[in-house]
């Protein structure tokens, strides 16, 4: 599956899709989108890259094996829930910054939760797909 058109297209599509996925993630609280969809779009970007350049290149690009993303994401989600507990509130109480940022709006604990979900979804999807691709190459 070494097609020049695909490779060239991927060169442009990968950053674009990744950017798009982050965009979807960040706007999730105000417009349609969110961690799940964002994560899936990002995964698709990497899958596309692996189709074009082969699995090894993609894995190099990622630097860390995809399964290491999972605990990072889980921890982030979890910590976003724990954070309010330092302020004496119950687990997962929402807390927000006072001033809104452009595009994202108010930065709150929910945003970090969503980012955690985003990372977990990328980790899970890529782990599954890469493991399968690897086993087929053998």
């Amino acid at each position: 599956m070494q097609s020049t058109i695909l490779k060239t297209a991927t060169n442009y599509l990968l950053p674009l899709l990744l950017l798009f996925s982050v965009f979807i993630l960040l706007r999730g609280h105000y417009e349609s989108g969110g961690g799940f969809v964002g994560g899936l779009v990002a995964s698709i970007a990497f899958v596309l890259h692996s189709f074009a350049y082969g699995l090894e290149r993609t894995q190099k690009l990622l630097k860390y094996p995809p399964k290491s993303f999972i605990p990072v994401g889980l921890l982030l989600s979890f910590m976003s829930g724990v954070l309010p507990m330092f302020g004496g509130k119950a687990y997962m109480t929402g807390v927000w910054s006072s001033e809104p940022l452009p595009v994202i709006g108010l930065v709150g604990s929910a945003l970090f939760f969503d980012i955690g979900v985003f990372i977990v979804v990328i980790g899970v999807t890529l782990t599954i797909l890469f493991t399968i691709s690897e086993s087929i190459d053998q």
Partner: peptide
């Protein structure tokens, strides 16, 4: 449904691998 879709993806991928 959103939850269901994502979960069913996990289920499907596991089932596909099991099948394999």
């Amino acid at each position: 449904i959103l939850t269901a879709i994502v979960i069913s993806f996990g289920l499907q991928s596991f089932a596909i691998i099991l099948l394999k």
